[in-house]
Write a protein that binds this DNA or RNA. Structure first.
Lengths: 215, 215
DNA sequence: TTTAAAATTTAACTGATAGTTAAAAATTAA
DNA sequence: TTAATTTTTAACTATCAGTTAAATTTTAAA
């Protein structure tokens, strides 16, 4: 049994080696410009073995993406466990996403790419775990918002579920700017970091508006 | 000369036929699942002719996308010319994007897809016009925001350029939800239309915050 | 009507690449 | 030693974007 589990471990290690090799190549050239042969070369392994461990190219990509998502998930958990009020937990999570995009820009890039139309269905294991982790992160943010509503640091006239989605969407797309927006900012000499900081100024009144403006 | 220009017109018509055929196929099956042979069949034209009129598949896709962008651009112009204050112009533009996504869901879908990493460089003509139109729309929104700042309907403590990007990003991604967000909303029985309406409630305080909260 | 240019078809071709396969070889557990 | 598992080998299929060059048809203009 102990030997069997050692074997299992080694198999897992081989799998991980392949994932790291794939990571390397995906990071360098994006998804579409990478061939399976390239990955096999990088992993110093035969191409057929890739298909022994992974169903196809997309599954391999999911495995890489999962690594990043796990990191991000941990960040969210840490933010949620901060000893502070709801508002600050939420802010910490948004900042956490920013930090993630800075510390792991490549993971962040494929995280965004994986959210594309191109990848939106799959029944394979890693894809499912990604969905679970993402759902988990969302749940944490909703919890934080609810805390904020109760302790009075976040407005109470909106559904926390919807609010969490607004925040996530905006944060994500602000960190993953399209070509036109980047151009515009560059032309105005606004760095993406300043753009991010100002996002906070922009959003704060939406998070807590003392005036319950209706219509 | 008049005959020459008639010929030109007919050539343009043929081009348009091809675009419409491509449109049909792209709308039905997305970009990646479409083959050039399919488009040629739909257009009842030989595949080689596609390459006579368009550089490659991507150029053809750009031509289709351009049609949608032109519609959207007109909407922005109309909103900008409304006889109202800056705040309401901005709101009208955001609502215009929503209307576009409802009236032309297919154009909207490829508009989003074309914003992806996959498509972010190209020197061909239609691609350039798309960039120009998008820049134009952005300019209009910045103008509207500046009017709002001057007439006092929009907060004055933020760069209008940045503000326009925040608004566009959020609106766009709220209309183009990723898989996880859609799931979450469905699970909570929140329709995407309600989600959109509530976005307005969420955002309003950020557009005009009477309290100039700093830090 | 003639002629030259432009538009269109035909069909076969290249090159890339994901994915398959089946058998042989190497490694490992027992 | 043996049987199961892992890994390699290398050749194969299928698909598709993109090319090409010659033939044919259509059109503009003289």
């Amino acid at each position: 049994m102990s030997k069997n589990s050692r074997r299992e471990r080694e198999k897992q290690q081989r799998r991980n080696m392949i994932i790291k090799a794939a990571e390397n190549v995906f990071f360098a050239k994006g998804y579409d410009n990478v061939t399976m042969d390239e990955i096999a070369n990088k992993a110093e392994v035969n191409k057929a073995l890739l298909y022994y461990y992974f169903k196809n190219k997309e599954a391999l990509f999911s495995a890489v993406n999962l690594c990043g998502v796990q990191i991000l998930h941990k960040i969210y958990v840490k933010c949620f466990n901060l000893d502070t009020d709801g508002y600050n937990k939420v802010k910490a999570m948004i900042q956490g996403l920013f930090d993630f995009s800075k510390e792991h820009p490549d993971y962040f890039r494929i995280y965004c790419y994986a959210g594309t139309e191109r990848f939106q269905m799959s029944d394979e294991e890693d894809a499912q775990e990604i969905v679970d982790l993402r759902t988990g992160m969302w749940r944490l943010m909703v919890e934080a918002i609810m805390e904020g509503i109760e302790d009075g640091t976040i407005r109470n006239d909106l559904d926390p579920v919807e609010m969490s989605i607004y925040l996530n969407l905006l944060a994500l797309s602000a960190l993953n700017l399209d070509f036109t927006s980047k151009m515009v900012l560059r032309a105005r000499n606004i760095s993406t970091d300043k753009f991010w900081e100002d996002l906070s100024t922009f959003l704060d009144p939406a998070l807590f508006s003392s005036q319950k403006m209706k219509k």
